[in-house]
Design a binder for these strands. Structure first.
Lengths: 121, 121
DNA sequence: AGGTCATTTCAAGAGTTGTTGAATAGTCGA
DNA sequence: TCGACTATTCAACAACTCTTGAAATGACCT
């Protein structure tokens, strides 16, 4: 994950409605939910939902697949993981308190991450 | 950390200049850096720097202290940790892939977090 | 083909955010 | 107290983001 992708992902995350979407879709797992069902659950107008879903998808935080006339959206865990990892790696890796919190585990998210190393982009 | 604080922190993070600031200030630790030194290092105009520093401070990601005529800014690791923990806890805790990545360690960041539990706000 | 349903695209408008130069406030040293 | 220095506030403007209703697209059923 590079700088501009991370920035896009953070921007996407930084919105109430989109945080709601992530939260709603997470328990739905790989299957996800159809746009219409999401709209109903969250009480969102169609265009508004579309706008936010595509923002999240474009940022790599959601994935979509068409089934008949429905579009199912599901969270892309790698995208979210990579975003968190980016913040950890590129902004906070030298900070003992944050570093200690994540050193071992975050590395599992994606091969690219080498938290114990000194990567710096 | 509540929803609106997390949102504020994510918004604050979602900007290139502010990411630069966090990155620059992290290695400087608790002591931080004086505003003027930051401005020079990053090549930022005064008002612009002030604007972004106060955005980050307001979001709880930075702290400041006055020394003589300088103002020193340093990262607030708890704020950053709490933000990451919020995303993990409130949006992704049911997602095996992300959960596995952070389960043990993030809990150390702040007492409030109980990643292995089922907290949901 | 015609009707309906699910979703997206479009265009307009309101609101918010970021940048700039000029002005202001506070601190220090002579 | 005066001048220099550090940093912030202000006002204006440009740019971007979000929301809305109307229109368009694509897929299914009869």
């Amino acid at each position: 994950m590079d700088r501009s992708k991370a920035l896009a992902a953070l921007s996407a995350l930084a919105h109430e409605t989109r945080l709601d979407l992530i939260r709603l879709l997470t328990p739905a797992g790989e299957d996800g939910m159809a746009a219409g069902q999401i709209a109903e659950t969250l009480g969102l107008a169609g265009p508004r939902l579309s706008f936010h879903l595509s923002a999240l998808e474009q940022a790599g935080l959601l994935r979509s697949r068409k089934v008949a006339r429905n579009v199912f959206y599901s969270v892309d865990a790698r995208g979210i993981g990579a975003t968190i990892a980016y913040v950890l790696n590129h902004c906070c890796c030298d900070h003992p308190e944050v570093r200690a919190a994540c050193t071992h585990r975050v590395g599992l998210l994606q091969g690219e991450v080498t938290l114990s190393g000194t990567e710096n982009t």
